[in-house]
Nucleic acid binder design. Structure first.
Lengths: 208, 208
DNA sequence: GTCTATAGTACGATAGAC
DNA sequence: GTCTATCGTACTATAGAC
């Protein structure tokens, strides 16, 4: 066990990279600073990783894979479209608040990927979009969701739930669960106060 | 008039900066490349702008001001909360598709701002959020919108409508107007197919 | 596995001629 | 207002000792 709680120097380096890439951006984060936080010299990083780009790839690949696995699990676990959507939203927001910096990097540093690696990471992102679109399409076909453009709906949901990683503060005004509840209601029911809505969840009915 | 259609070298330089900042990111876009696109040498940029950072500031300030002015106009022009929201969404998406690269830079290069200038740009962004929150709060108090967390609702709307700038292609599958219509319905009515909804706009009723 | 030393390159910015 | 030439700096990455 290392002083920073990581179990290997390789992990310490990656953790430092996550922190600095998220704070300053990939190009503005010098390897010397990553090394200093990890407690070694810049040259020593090259014993663990072939170059700076490899750090970015490992961060993006690792967490996009985790995100996909977690959504696949939701789709396998549940069948009801509305419950699936509820769980997918909760899963997305939980992942993006728990691994805030990692997903912020995925969201903002796609341009920093060199061309050879970009296609791979984009394919992982496309896979996630496809899974969510499958969920939405199924819900529309089964008459639970309104007929609408599936791609636009998936982009909208992903954009709003991803951006939580930008402003969420673990000790802020709202808990993760409160954020999830608000987003669920907003996505499923919209903003309009519509008399006669029958799907109002009990947990929010008191607000009326 | 210059060969690129800009009316001054100052504008040509800024247009080149917009293009390269959006494509590669602020730190990865060399002044030499900006100069080449503008048709001059890198050193000549310094006759028009004091430094590279000034280019970023001018882009962000100009378009955040335009965005605020346009939303203020919507709030002055309309009174009905639902119509205000419709117009605000349309305005946001129109601005973000028309000035796609400029707003993409505002959205992704906040970290590249040096500390002295960051506060100013953030205050412009905060102003925009406050205007939208005022619209939402008013709509809730007047019983048109559901009671919900105004800040979360504003973040969600801004995030989803801003991200359009990332994927929208002028000659793509969907027109700007189709995107606006889809987003409006999604934001106002949500995904759920709820029997008994009374506020279904005529323009989308045929989808059912 | 980590170090020191440094190669090699690219960048932002300046000086000064025209 | 634009040029050429170049300064000073900072960065990624490598070489080679320990």
């Amino acid at each position: 066990m290392r002083p920073d709680g990581r179990s290997s120097m390789r992990e310490s380096i990656l953790a430092a990279a996550v922190h600095l890439f998220a704070q300053y951006g990939y190009h503005a984060a010098p390897l010397r600073d990553i090394a200093r936080i990890a407690g070694i010299q810049a040259a020593s990083i090259y014993h663990h990783y072939p170059n700076k780009q490899a750090l970015l790839i490992e961060i993006m690949e690792t967490y996009m894979l985790r995100l996909n696995v977690s959504l696949e699990h939701v789709l396998k676990e549940f069948d009801d479209p509305l419950q699936r959507l509820h769980e997918a939203i909760a899963n997305h927001i939980r992942m993006h608040t728990t691994y805030k910096e990692e997903f912020f990097i995925i969201d903002t540093e796609m341009r920093a990927l060199e061309e050879e690696h970009k296609a791979h990471i984009i394919s992982l992102r496309d896979k996630y979009e496809a899974l969510l679109q499958e969920l939405l399409q199924d819900g529309m076909e089964r008459g639970v969701f309104r007929q609408s453009d599936v791609k636009i709906a998936s982009y909208a949901i992903i954009a709003m739930c991803t951006e939580v990683a930008t402003w969420f503060r673990p000790n802020g005004r709202l808990s993760v669960q409160q954020v999830i509840t608000s987003y669920r209601q907003f996505i499923v029911e919209g903003l309009l106060l519509t008399p006669g809505v029958t799907h109002m969840p009990d947990e929010t009915a008191h607000l009326l």
